[in-house]
């Protein structure tokens, strides 16, 4: 295989991942590492480095489109980023000491769990009516735009949300993923934020979390420019295309396809980890 062929394969594979990830709202990052390691034989650490970089690209590109709507809550984002960046740093440092086989197994489990999450309907929990003391002190309560004018919401479950964000950060730094699903889960279910607020705030946090891990990966020599460039550009173009066709897509069918892909990749990663390949 020539370098040109490998670059083209990486670009096309990443484009597909970014496209599917954007259409299903799961983010493409979670399939990049299995794609690179299982199908192209790339070393796991290089794959994680390339994936982290691509996660920053999609998060930053999407943020430009999201912020216009005014759903993002920067206070919640910045407060919780303290937890995700600390976690990401710990995860990135851990990645150097944890055996590749173990990382592979953890990755497989996260993929299976993501498949489960992607199939589960995302139920909007009733927003809290009463102000929470800690949330009030941190001024996390805010409003979001609706056709009938700004709608106020209260935030709750701050310590629980913070703890989950720490875990989301560790997984991001260890596996090179955005951990968007876990971030959204924490903000939806524990902190009781409205859907649109948690989705956009999570997207904003993903870039900062990934940057915390990516800096360490770069300094450790885990970011290979010739692998990371086609992956980054592929995911970016795929995500932008996905955002364009999103209007006419059938999310239900896509979610099933994506879940099947996640289960297949998850099983492969666990198999690779167990057999030590």
């Amino acid at each position: 295989m020539t370098i040109a062929t490998l670059t083209a394969l990486l670009f096309i594979g990443s484009l597909a991942a970014g496209f599917l990830g954007s259409l299903t709202g799961m983010g493409g990052g979670v399939v990049i590492v299995p794609l690179l390691t299982i199908f192209m034989g790339v070393d796991l650490r290089y794959a994680v480095g390339a994936s982290l970089v691509s996660v920053i690209a999609t998060s930053s590109a999407a943020a430009a489109a999201y912020v216009k709507d005014g759903y993002t809550n920067i206070r919640i984002g910045m407060f919780l980023e303290g937890a995700t960046t600390m976690g990401a740093m710990a995860g990135a440092v851990l990645a150097a000491f944890v055996p590749v086989a173990a990382i592979s197994i953890v990755f497989g489990l996260v993929l299976l769990w993501s498949a489960y999450l992607s199939m589960r309907p995302r139920a909007e929990s009733s927003t809290s009516e009463l102000p929470d003391r800690l949330a009030t002190w941190l001024r996390l309560d805010s409003t979001y735009p609706t056709p009938d004018g700004p709608q106020a919401y209260h935030v709750r479950g701050v310590p629980g949300g913070y703890a989950i964000m720490l875990v989301a950060g560790i997984l991001s730094g260890l596996l090179g993923i955005g951990s968007g699903a876990l971030k959204v889960l924490a903000m939806d279910q524990v902190m009781r934020l409205p859907f649109k607020v948690s989705t956009t705030t999570s997207n904003f946090m993903i870039g900062v979390t990934a940057a915390a891990g990516a800096g360490i990966y770069l300094n450790r020599g885990y970011v290979d420019p010739t692998l990371a460039m086609p992956v980054m550009l592929g995911v970016l173009v795929g995500a932008l295309l996905g955002a364009k066709v999103l209007v006419g897509a059938k999310p239900r069918v896509l979610r099933i396809i994506f879940a099947v892909v996640l289960v297949a990749l998850g099983a492969q990663m666990i198999y690779h980890g167990v057999t030590g390949n």
Binding site: V53, I56, S60, G207, A210, A211, G215, L218, M232
Partner: peptide
């Protein structure tokens, strides 16, 4: 790639 990491 460094510029990208620096954007956040």
């Amino acid at each position: 790639l460094v510029i990208l990491i620096l954007t956040p």
